[in-house]
Amino acid sequence: MEVDPKQTALRIDKFLVDRIPNLSRNRIQNGLKEGHFLVNGLPVKPNYKVAAGDVVMVFMPKPRAQEIEPQNIPLDILYEDEDLLIVNKKPGMVVHPGFNNTSGTLVNALSYHFKDLPTSFNGSDKPGLVHRIDKDTSGLLVVAKTEHSLTHLAKQFYDHTIERTYNLLVWGTFPDEEKEGTVKSLIGRSAQDRRVYTVLPDDATYGKHAITHYKVLKDMRYVSLVECKLETGRTHQIRVHMRHLGHPLFSDAMYGGDKILKGVSTGKYKTFVENNFKICPRQALHAKSLGFEHPVTGKWMQFNTEIPQDMQRLIRRWEDFLRYG
């Protein structure tokens, strides 16, 4: 990769961690010491600062694919044919195995219930997967059953022709002129916390473009029920964009939504909110609908699912609180 002409001096390990997905800074530093990264044809130390025009070459060996253990985990399958299936993922289920999550994932379940799922797009450790949603996000996922379907669906995601709608509960209310809108930004890892993503300045030299359309469905004085439609599907996109607007998702610990952000922090209200956190101990986010062109028939397929029980109960409690106080 060639360093952008506008790039300011930056340590090469920091430069690379934002450009190579799923590779930790520690592994990059070890790779630099072992000569797996070259700048302008020469090995460099982790504290080397890249400059405009530098050419960085990567020779890191790919990590060995993890062997998937098929597990008899029940799946909520809304639709299935010879080419694909639609899964309604429950909250708390990780989509594919990774560090600290080697079992109990959606992929472990898929490997048990379906044999010979395609792997050309994501590798043998993510059979059939075209996209993913976070562990604590519930809702719809499409899974490919053939190589043709995998390629065709992946292209639709790449071309942004897939329709995805999410329902979410956020802190605060929106002014009348902001009850519907679009957020366009660059999204990248936070410099302060690598687990967290953030909106970057427009002239940032890293990050990915992200577009979210939102509409307020219900104003409940302290919180709002919102619908989001994605044009792009960046990591934590909705969570990042809502926080950027000043409305973190309710109970979203990673993005600051797990504390009282609207209303007093004392008395009965405090107890009420804390009980709500216990009812929905995750970000209140649900992948509600999914639409795409069938990879074989060309027919438009549209799927919808109900908001899960924890979020339904949460919404009812806020509605009752607003009504009765």
Rank of each mutant, 00 (worst) to 15 (best):
Y214N: 02
D176M: 13
G123L: 09
T271I: 13
K126T: 04
S24E: 03
N167I: 14
Q192T: 15
S190I: 09
L169Q: 12
K6M: 04
L16C: 05
R234Q: 00
L117F: 08
L285N: 09
R282T: 05
E69Y: 13
P248H: 11
Y324L: 13
M57Y: 11
G41T: 10
S224N: 01
V95A: 08
H209C: 02
N40T: 07
I28N: 02
N26E: 10
V273A: 00
P74V: 06
E178S: 15
Q71S: 12
T161N: 05
G325Y: 07
E293C: 09
L230I: 06
F15M: 05
K90I: 12
D219Q: 13
L186M: 11
G35W: 13
H152M: 15
Y79I: 07
Q192K: 15
V216D: 01
L230E: 00
L217H: 01
G267C: 06
K218L: 10
R234K: 07
N40F: 10
R243T: 12
L245Y: 12
H213D: 04
A52E: 04
V296A: 11
R316H: 13
A52N: 02
G233E: 01
W300V: 14
P127I: 08
R19M: 00
D76G: 07
P308L: 06
K45Y: 01
G188F: 03
M301A: 03
W318V: 03
Y112H: 15
V142D: 00
P175K: 10
L245N: 12
F37M: 11
F321L: 10
